[in-house]
């Protein structure tokens, strides 16, 4: 028993390190001078720190051509796209779909099919989605990205919420039926309220996927707000190709800055996330 615990702790530590290391590396890179960044062997534990990557002579993120003001258009695009796509995918699609699958359709296979959809690599749909977005004239707009993100996030959110709806005792809804509520009122006034932890988990996971998405942002947009809809991940890529050099320090600093919303959300909603994910994992 005790040996088991030790093994588990060691394994968990290794897994955590694997996940934490990139974040740590970004963090230390952001506070190194460019000389330190390119030193070999690499410096894992820098002893001298600089904030010049975050701010040099009026330029935020130390990059040659990016300024604090410069990042704002990408931030606007990301915020709007992620929020609208997240809300729409969770409330307009996932919640009603999950509820009707659990209460009315009751098909185990349809549930599994939805889970299966979440496992298909998103890149598979690159060509059709590109063509569709072009056809409906939404290239380089918020709505083009939003539609695509809804279609990517809705299946997982649906599957997640199915587990939560399944957990509502049936008699609570039956009581509501007898009390005179219509099916829509039962959904909206009773069942939806009882799965709020699941809703929060779905919202956060959806938001994080939308915020971090790079591939479709890359092919569906080509300029930031106000002319277009390029999102934050694309802002980061601009550090790699700027002036034929790699602005690693600036990239790391900007990376930390743009990571902040997802990290804050993640910490704030940790308990919902853990509950949401384990719940989904237990249910089939």
């Amino acid at each position: 028993m005790k040996a088991m615990t030790v093994v588990v702790i060691i394994l968990l530590t290794i897994v955590s390190l694997v996940y934490i290391f990139p974040i740590y590396w970004t963090l230390v890179t952001a506070v190194k001078t460019s000389l330190q960044i390119f030193t070999y062997p690499p410096i894992f534990f820098p002893t001298r720190f600089t904030l010049s990557n975050f701010y040099t002579a009026g330029n935020i993120f130390g990059a040659v051509s990016q300024t604090a003001v410069g990042s704002v258009p990408w931030m606007i695009d990301s915020t709007i796209v992620a929020i609208i796509a997240t809300l729409a995918s969770t409330f307009l699609i996932a919640a009603p779909a999950a509820y009707s699958l659990v209460r009315y359709i009751k098909s185990v296979w349809l549930g599994r099919l939805i889970l299966f959809m979440t496992m298909i690599p998103e890149a598979v749909f690159m060509v059709p989605f590109f063509l569709i977005v072009v056809k409906i004239n939404l290239l380089n707009t918020w709505w083009g990205l939003i539609l695509v993100y809804i279609s990517f996030t809705a299946p997982f959110a649906t599957w997640l919420l199915m587990g939560f709806f399944n957990d509502i005792p049936k008699s609570v809804e039956e009581a509501a039926e007898i009390d005179g509520l219509s099916p829509y009122q039962i959904f909206y006034r009773i069942s939806l309220r009882l799965v709020i932890p699941g809703i929060i988990a779905a919202l956060i996971l959806n938001f994080i996927s939308c915020w971090n998405e790079l591939l479709y942002a890359l092919i569906l947009t080509y300029s930031p707000f106000p002319a277009g809809a390029q999102t934050v991940p694309l802002f980061l890529t601009s550090f790699i190709i700027v002036e034929k050099s790699f602005a690693w320090g600036g990239l790391a600093a900007a990376g930390i800055f743009t990571m902040l919303p997802t990290i804050i959300l993640g910490i704030y909603a940790q308990k919902y996330l853990a509950r949401g994910l384990t719940m989904g994992a237990v249910k089939g």
């Binding site: 005792p169 008699s171 609570v172 039956e174 009581a175 509501a176 007898i178 009773i190 009882l194």
Partner: peptide, 13 residues
């Protein structure tokens, strides 16, 4: 009809 359920079935929220 009005019904009292064996397990009460109150609205938890």
């Amino acid at each position: 009809v009005a019904m009292v359920f064996q397990n009460y079935a109150l609205y938890p929220h």
